[in-house]
Design a protein around this nucleic acid. Structure first.
Lengths: 170, 170
DNA sequence: ACATCGGGTTCGATCATTGAACCTGTCGTC
DNA sequence: GACGACAGGTTCAATGATCGAACCCGATGT
C-alpha cells in the first residue's frame, strides 16, 4: 500500500499506517463493520472513484484485512468481509469516531452492548457489564434528531439498528 | 487539510480523518507525544520533506491540535506542543500502535503507568490500578533486544525512558 | 565581519487521485 | 437464444499532492 515509505521508522505505528493510512481505507473498513460487503454498495455509500475502490479493496485483501470470496447467490460476484485481523481494527475505528464526535461533529450513530442494551462509553466499554464487547456484540443505531442525510439505498439500509458485521440486506 | 473531500459523509470518522488522515500527520502527532517540539527535531526523526512538514504543522495548528509558540530560549524559533484536543488523540495513537504490534511488527516501545510502574494493556489501561492513565502519567521506554535502530540525535534521546509529553532535551 | 544553524519557502520532476469512458460476464425477459 | 440491464471491474488523460534539492533569512557564535 504505502510501500516502503515509512520503512526506516522502527515503529508499529508506521507499520499500521502503511496498511490503513491511505486515503479512503479506514472509511472502507468502517463500512465493512457496518455490514457492507459488495463493491457497488461501497461505491454508492462512499462516492469513491471505482479505480481507487478497486485498488484499496485489493490492498486490504493482500494485507489480510478483508477476505474476498464468491457470492453464493450470484455467480461472478464477490463479497468482501473482514478477517479476524480486520475485525481487530475496531478499537482504532472506535477511537477515531470518539475523538471526532467529541471535537468535530457529534457522532451520527450510537453503539450499545447487544446483550444488555447499555450505551458504550468512548473507550468502547459497557459501563453496566464492565466488559469491552467485540464488534459482533455491538448494536449500532442512528442517533435521533438529525437531518435525513444521504438518500442512497445503502445509507437508507444502514439507518436500521443492527449488529456490527451483520451483512447488509439491500 | 483534506478539505471537503469526505464532505458528504455524515460521520464523525470522516471528520476525524479530514484532520489526521493525511500522510505523515499521525507520525507527527506521535512524535509530539514522545516529546518532540522543534521543527528540525521532527524532520530529523521522520525523514519528511521540509515542505511537507511545514504544511502539516501549519494544518495541525489550524486545527487546534498543536500550538505554536515562541521558544523562550531562542529568539526567532518556535515550539510545537499538543493542545488538549491534540492530547485527546492518545487513544487513537495507542489503538494503532497496539494493532500494529499485534499483527505487523512487535512494538519497539512499551508503556507503563507512571505511578505504579505496571505495564499498560493494549487498551491503555493499568491492570493493577484499573484506570486508563492520561498521557502525562505514562512512561515509555524502549523494549530490550532490538537492533540499535536509527542513530540520529532525536532517536537516541528518545531511547531514554521518559514520560509522554515531557519535552525532549537535545 | 563572517560563517553557521534553525526554520523555513520555492521549484521542477514524479507519483497518486479523479471522473468519465469502456469492457466483460450473468441474469431476466421476451 | 437475442437483448438489454446490471455488477464489477480496467483504462485513460487531467489534475493535484509529494518529493528532494536548492535557496533564503534572521539570530547567534567567534
Amino acid at each position: 500500500m504505502l510501500g516502503k515509505d515509512y520503512e526506516n521508522q522502527d515503529c508499529a505505528l508506521a507499520r499500521a499506517l502503511e496498511v490503513v493510512g491511505e486515503r479512503w481505507t479506514l472509511l472502507i473498513v468502517r463500512d465493512a463493520f457496518y455490514g457492507v460487503r459488495r463493491f457497488n454498495d461501497f461505491q454508492a455509500h462512499l462516492d469513491i472513484p471505482k479505480a481507487v475502490l478497486s485498488d484499496r479493496l485489493a490492498g486490504l485483501v493482500d494485507e489480510d484485512i478483508l477476505e474476498r470470496r464468491p457470492d453464493p447467490q450470484h455467480a461472478g460476484r464477490h463479497l468482501y468481509e473482514l478477517t479476524p485481523v480486520g475485525r481487530d481494527l475496531w478499537p482504532v475505528i472506535n477511537a477515531l469516531l470518539a475523538w471526532g464526535g467529541r471535537h468535530r461533529h457529534t457522532n451520527s450513530r450510537l453503539f450499545r452492548h447487544a446483550t444488555c442494551g447499555t450505551r458504550l462509553d468512548d473507550a468502547g466499554r459497557c459501563p453496566q457489564c464492565g466488559v469491552t464487547p467485540a464488534p459482533g456484540d455491538i448494536v449500532t443505531e442512528r442517533r435521533r434528531g438529525r437531518g435525513r442525510g444521504r438518500r442512497d439505498p445503502v445509507s437508507v439500509a444502514l439507518r436500521e439498528p443492527h449488529r456490527l458485521l451483520e451483512p447488509l440486506e439491500t
